[in-house]
Amino acid sequence: MSNEQEILNLIARYTHFLDKGDFDGIGNLFAEGKIISTGSSMEGKEGISKKLTEDLQVYSDGTTRTAHVTTNTVLDIQEGKDQASAVSYLTIYQQDDERDFPLQPIMIGKYHDTFKRKNGKWHFSVREVVITLTGDLSHHAKPEIMKYVENGQQ
């Protein structure tokens, strides 16, 4: 598999795990990395899995009832340094039939990612989530987190 495809697969796996509510899977992707967003930082496998479990709603079907769509990815692979970076657009859609919440976009932003290659395999190093537009996040974040989101603290 090419370096480019391996990195694109990492980016895609993140969204697949998140939409499935598999926070341990995301933790595994960042075993030696961290995720940074406004007012929050998560690091390492256990830290990331724990924080996502604390912050995000998981529904009776085990999913977050979201579709994270990552597009317009621009990669910069620095072969000689075993490093790479990527910038991607992010759009999150959500639907909650149990609570009369029709399909709609709830968040738009960008991922700024850095990657490192170790033992011939690419890994996430840092993912910075930059949110530019938000809709109704009340079905995505847990209620106790929403008070911070509404006050611009998270």
Rank of each mutant, 00 (worst) to 15 (best):
G21A: 09
T15Q: 06
T53Y: 07
V129F: 03
S85Q: 12
Q5T: 07
S41K: 09
R99L: 14
V58T: 15
R117K: 15
V149P: 09
N3H: 10
I7K: 09
R13N: 08
Q57L: 12
I145K: 10
H140T: 06
K118I: 15
Q83L: 14
G62N: 10
Y148V: 09
Q83P: 00
F17E: 07
S88G: 07
T15F: 04
R117M: 13
K121A: 13
D22E: 01
D136F: 03
G135E: 13
K121C: 04
D19E: 04
G27V: 03
D61T: 02
I106L: 04
I77R: 09
P102D: 04
D96R: 11
D61F: 02
Q5L: 14
N28S: 06
M107Y: 06
E128T: 08
P102L: 02
L137A: 07
Q5P: 00
G44C: 12
K118Q: 12
K20M: 10
K51N: 12
N119E: 04
R127V: 05
N151M: 13
D82T: 02
G25A: 02
K20D: 05
K20S: 04
Q78C: 09
K51I: 05
K45M: 08
E32I: 10
T38I: 11
L90E: 01
V149T: 07
I145Y: 08
P105G: 13
L8T: 11
T71V: 11
D113W: 04
D55R: 15
L10I: 01
F17L: 02
I77M: 04
T38F: 04
E128N: 06
H123P: 01
A67D: 09
F17V: 03
S37Q: 02
T38R: 15
G62Y: 08
L8R: 15
K142P: 00
D82N: 14
D22W: 00
Q94T: 02
H123I: 08
V129S: 02
L137V: 03
V129H: 03
K50G: 01
W122G: 00
N119M: 06
L75K: 08
A31S: 11
M107D: 03
E128L: 08
D19L: 12
